[in-house]
Design a protein around this nucleic acid. Structure first.
Lengths: 355, 355
DNA sequence: CTCACCATTTACAACGATGTAAGATCACTG
DNA sequence: CAGTGATCTTACATCGTTGTAAATGGTGAG
């Protein structure tokens, strides 16, 4: 189908098309962008010429001229987690639907990467940035005078940028309450920060919800059962549980702050002969595809990843149209998804008792 | 730290820096690129000026001038799989080390996306493309007269482009032989195409290896135990096993063509009361992080994802330097990783026998 | 003191697309 | 048949950077 094409070492430009169609370059531009009226016969000639030369507009030139690249940046802490994969998938799909391309960045490995991205905005090559902040939290955003178009995802305790979030505190409270109702009495929070340490807003809020649920049930959570996890990955989750066990802490349920952490936890529990949910209840966060297929299926907090992506892209698009509009925070609905990993009503977990 | 900055609505350009440093724009350019000698005092003045104005070179302009963006495209069929996440992670990390950014694309959803990517090369905004072909296989590549710099990953049966691959046939043969040695006699290939259907080269080769292992053992594989899977995801794997069971096929081991497929298969087996490895042996491909943490841990074919990314980026860089050099195919070493999902020596699986 | 010669630095013109404003064309109206 | 719009097309300048070639300044030899 593409066989009978002229050998095209240097790609055809508007000037070439114009010459072939016997019009000016600007007319070609008008045909391409549709930004001005072009008579039917002229349009035909131009379109034929474009087809004949396999013309593709040079985006660099267009960008240089009018300032927009059509590329948005997506910066996530760790691209290898299941949630990152899901989110990337959703963002790329939705961005493509809008004619935008996605440039992807990873921030966790390098301390200054987030700051760089925000402050340089990839040297004009991206129009805006969707950022899941971890390291600098809001500080990169705080210190900049004039921000590039940025949408933060996840909880952030400031109002200077647009953001999309789920109510992590409430969600954590719900999942914790659920596990208490299933008979757990010594719940572990996996992902909350150690005391005094810096933590992401997300971690803080989930920990808060965990505690709130205890308080509402007339119980209280124990400091030795509030564990930090780093990184928030399968390996991190497994390691945290190893520590928990070797520290001789008694527990009968684990509220992991991501599904990946939960998967790691389950592995470590298994290694120590502890079964889910008979001995220990287990829940996660994010509802990645894998959660439903785990054995037993994982109880988790779910929300629509696609909605999340749409909301972020909407906010970004609106910001690009009007840089000075008031910032908005878009909440995304979540729901508790109860599956086998938190057992059955009336059957309390046996719990882990150190020898 | 960034507090005392001048309010900068329009970003500073080289001209601004030049004015402040009392030199010509070209001298600023020379300082930035290091492409010509600049005396020490002048360099100092220019660098001070750049710092003062927080100068960031405009990549669009640079690209327009010299044709390179520093962005490479990464096109994968399905971004939500664990393997995609791992590979993306590796490519982004390695590309960043080389000062390149990664633009990500997803090809499975749309038939013509691959072809578009190859033929338009994102309208000059990417320097080259790393492509995991699924749909068009090599045909997009076949039909183009002059190709943009492309590196294909995975097996492809042609020699017109650079490519990185593992020896899928051999790997499949090894893992299959291993399972036969563990006592399985009715192995299922999960991911090979149905007869007469178009399949990716990867699928064909893995199926070939599966058969070769049988032949080498004096056995033969049965057509009803060679199943196509679509998509190559957890859900696809689960569905395929459901079909297998409801079709009343007898089997005692599953060679899944990706780890995700294996995970889905394990879920479906569990649903039918079949245990891994006591009733059915199970293996995957790719060694994603999750495989080691699964219960039981998954036997799989592993290879270094980072090496894979490095090789692809090396080939692409070499191609960018010399477009007319001969194409190269870079093999990546693989190894069989035996874990619990294929049982223990001497303990053959009980197998699944339809009622 | 002049001249050749080196190291730096500069002016200018691209790269390709598009906004602006001016020019061309044509159909009508008075 | 000149005049008035309305419609379409064009010339020109510009976005920010960098290759080319020419200009500048300073140094040491003659």
């Amino acid at each position: 189908m593409l066989a009978n094409m002229p050998p095209r070492s240097p790609r055809a430009t508007m000037k070439d098309v114009a010459a072939l169609a016997r019009v000016s370059p600007k007319t070609v531009s008008n045909v391409v962008t549709g930004s001005a009226q072009v008579s039917e016969p002229t349009r035909q000639r131009v379109e034929d010429a474009m087809r004949q030369l396999d013309f593709v507009p040079n985006l660099s030139a267009r960008t240089l001229r009018n300032g927009r690249t059509g590329i948005i940046g997506l910066a996530l802490p760790d691209l290898s987690t299941a949630f990152s994969a899901d989110l990337t998938h959703a963002v790329v799909q939705e961005a493509h639907r809008r004619g935008q391309a996605v440039q992807i960045e990873e921030t966790a490995a390098e301390p200054d990467r987030e700051h760089d991205l925000v402050s340089r905005a990839r040297a004009h090559l991206i129009d805006g940035l969707i950022l899941n902040p971890v390291r600098l939290e809001d500080s990169a955003v705080e210190h900049e005078e004039s921000l590039p178009p940025v949408v933060l995802i996840g909880e952030v305790e400031q109002t200077r940028t647009d953001r999309v979030f789920i109510d992590s505190r409430r969600a954590a409270e719900e999942v914790t309450a659920h596990m208490l109702s299933r008979g757990a009495r010594r719940l572990v929070a996996l992902g909350g920060a150690e005391h005094g340490e810096r933590a992401t807003a997300t971690a803080r809020l989930r920990l808060q919800g965990f505690r709130d649920a205890h308080a509402a049930a007339g119980l209280s959570s124990a400091p030795e059962r509030e564990l930090g996890v780093w990184p928030w990955s399968i390996g991190g989750g497994a390691e945290a549980v190893e520590q928990l066990v070797s520290a001789g802490v008694e527990f009968d349920g684990i509220v992991a702050f991501t599904d990946s952490i939960a998967m790691g936890a389950r592995h470590a529990l298994h290694r120590h002969g502890l079964s889910v949910p008979d001995d220990v209840l287990l829940s996660g966060f994010d509802d990645v595809e894998h959660a439903a297929y785990s054995i037993p299926p994982l109880t988790t907090v779910g929300f629509d990843h696609h909605d999340y992506a749409v909301a972020a892209l909407d906010l970004l698009a609106a910001r690009l149209d009007d840089r000075s509009r008031a910032t908005r925070a878009e909440p995304i609905a979540h729901r508790l998804i109860v599956r086998g990993s938190t057992g059955d009503p009336g059957a309390a977990p046996r719990g882990h008792r150190p020898a």
